[in-house]
Structure formats: C-alpha cells, structure tokens
C-alpha cells in the first residue's frame, strides 16, 4: 500500500504545477495582485504608499510571527489582540507626560517598553501554563484570556485613550526608518530560531506529535510554555509599534486585527494542525493581506466592500491551498 508513495515524486511537472506546488505561491499571488491592480489604482506604486504599507505591515507581521510559532506547536493564540490593547494602555500609564508613573523622566520610554514586553510575556506564560499544566484546550484558554485582558484594558482606562506620550517612544512607531529595520531584525531572529536552532526542531516535533516528542526526550511542556511566551512578547512588541504610530495608548487597540493575524498566517501556509509553518510563509501571507487592504483603500472602496473582498480572498486562497494538497499529496 505504501509502495507507490515510497517511489517519491511523480515525473513531468509543468510550469504551472511547479508554481502551484511552490512555497512561494502566495508571493506570486502578491505579485499578481500588485501587477493587476497597479494600473488602475492611483498611487499604489508610489514610494509614500510603500512606506505606509510597510509601516502597517510591520506590527502585523510581528503578531503573526508569534501566531505562527503557536500554530506550529499545535495550539492557537486568540489573546494576542488583548495583549496589544493591555500593553498599550499599561505602557501609556507608565510613560505619559501628564500623570504617568514616570512622567517627565528620561527613562520613561525604555522602561515603558520593558514593562510592555514583560507584561506580554507574562500573559503568554499564563496561557502556556494553563495549556500544559492544567491541560486546558488552547482555544478556550486564549479565548477567555482575550475576553479578560481586553476587558481589563477597558476597565483600567474606563474606556479612554491615554495621549501625550514621550516623543522618544512615538518616534519608534511612526518613523518607518526605525520600525521597519526593527521588525525585519525580529523576523530574521525568529527565522533563525525556527529553522536552525534546537528549539525550532523541538517546536515542530511537539506540533507533529507531542507524545512522540515526550518519549524522545523533548521537554514538551517547557517548549509549549516558551512558545506562548514568545507569542505574548511579539504581540507586545507589535503594540509598541502600534501605540507609537497612534501616539496614544488605546484600550481597543488591535481589536479588529485578530482575524487578519490568523488569516494571514494560515494563508501563508502554516497548518492549523501543527508542525508546519515558516517565517517566510507568514511574511507572504501578511504582505498579501496588507497589499489587498492597501489597494482596496486606495481604490476608494468602502469599508464593507473591503471586508467582503478580504473574506472572499481568504476563501480563495484556502481553496487554492486545498487544491494543491489534494492534487499533489493525495
């Protein structure tokens, strides 16, 4: 029964099937989307627009990378947007120039960033502990975390924004020259971690089959907890960029991007069943969704049309993915 599969890949693949099978499929789709829309979309190809596009993309990429790690380990993290909101608010409470705990101090911005990252990591650790030590389903754990921490962010601020943040902080998020290299650096680090480190090997093994990993001496619980911590820290890092761009700490920051995060990650090719995923895939997925968003905005389409198109495109990409796994792995 396995004899057929043992012989390896089939022969004679045309260029189209090669493209379909390629892990760069989503990148090709991005190029197609851009090429197809650029002639009709004023300003799509302009430098300013690119800077804006990548400025939008950078924080989304960071969150999606965290999600990628969690999906690879076979979990899911719905709490990322609440982490973005809560860290945004707490960071602003630490550093705003009116009533902040460190108002006026030169250390306000760095301390606030530190606090935000640690807070993100702590929430991630809580998720990880509940999933491993208490054996709770990740979907429910992170769903309740989402409800709880976004509620907490709103309660802390009584649903008000906190403005007047130090310039040192807002520059980080609003100046593409700072934000983009930073995001690229982090993405590079995650890539190395995933592809070339022991942790990356362990991560995939846990995602493919946690029992096999455990029998093979992989510290499964530690790996899973570390992964949720990483997701929390990356969400907090995204929050630093988002908050900086907005120049306010907002308790509803990121509320709308949860589905974009998961959609982009899965679109890129990361499996919801664990084990499979790459930084480059997620980058392509994020690029695709951001490009789509950007082009549709430039076309002057309304908010609701954009939503419908986005939904349709997610479905189309999923369809394409199903088609290629069905044709080539059946």
């Amino acid at each position: 029964m396995n004899v057929a599969a043992d012989t390896g890949s089939p022969s004679g693949s045309s260029r189209l099937t090669a493209a379909l099978r390629s892990e760069y499929l989503v990148l090709f789709l991005c190029a197609g989307l851009f090429g197809g829309l650029a002639p009709f979309t004023p300003g799509l190809a302009s430098t300013d627009n690119f800077l804006g596009l990548f400025g939008n993309l950078a924080p989304l990429l960071l969150v999606a990378l965290g999600q990628t790690l969690v999906l690879i380990v076979g979990g899911i993290d719905l709490s990322v947007t609440s982490i973005i909101a809560l860290t945004s608010v707490v960071g602003a409470l630490v550093m705003n120039r009116d009533t902040g705990w460190l108002a006026g101090s030169g250390a306000a911005a760095p301390v606030a960033i530190g606090v935000m990252l640690v807070l993100g990591g702590l929430i991630g650790a809580g998720n990880g502990l509940a999933v491993t030590k208490l054996r709770m389903p990740a979907f429910m754990v992170t769903l309740t975390a989402l409800m709880f921490f976004s509620g907490l962010a709103i309660w802390l601020t009584q649903s008000k924004n906190i403005g007047n943040l130090p310039t040192a902080f807002t520059e980080l998020g609003s100046r593409p020259a700072l934000a983009l290299p930073l995001a690229a650096l982090i993405a590079g680090l995650v890539h190395l971690l995933l592809e070339r480190s022991l942790y990356g090997r362990w991560l995939r093994a846990c995602g493919f089959n946690a029992r096999t990993a455990h029998v093979s001496g992989v510290p499964v619980e530690a790996v899973v907890i570390a992964t949720y911590v990483a997701s929390g820290v990356l969400a907090a890092a995204a929050s630093v960029l988002y908050t900086g761009r907005l120049e306010t700490g907002s308790p509803v920051l990121g509320q709308r991007i949860l589905l974009d995060v998961i959609g982009a990650t899965v679109l890129g090719g990361t499996s919801l069943f664990g084990g499979k995923g790459r930084v480059s895939w997620t980058f392509f997925g994020v690029l695709f969704l951001s490009l789509l968003d950007n082009a549709l905005n430039l076309l002057g389409l309304s908010h609701f049309t954009i939503m419908m198109v986005k939904g349709g495109v997610i479905l189309l990409a999923a369809l394409l993915d199903t088609a290629r796994t069905r044709w080539f792995n059946a």
């Binding site: 090997r201 995939r204 093994a205 493919f208 089959n209 029992r211 096999t212 455990h214 084990g275 499979k276």
Partner: peptide, 19 residues
C-alpha cells in the same frame, strides 16, 4: 502514536532524540 512524527521528514525523525 508515540514512535514517529509521521508528517515530519526522515531526517527530523532520525535526529529527534540526539539533535
């Protein structure tokens, strides 16, 4: 059940214990 990661590659399975 707990001997292999079926979807992972031969190399990754071979290396799992000693990587």
């Amino acid at each position: 059940d707990d001997g292999l990661c079926l979807e992972a590659s031969v190399a990754d399975n071979l290396a799992l214990v000693t990587v």
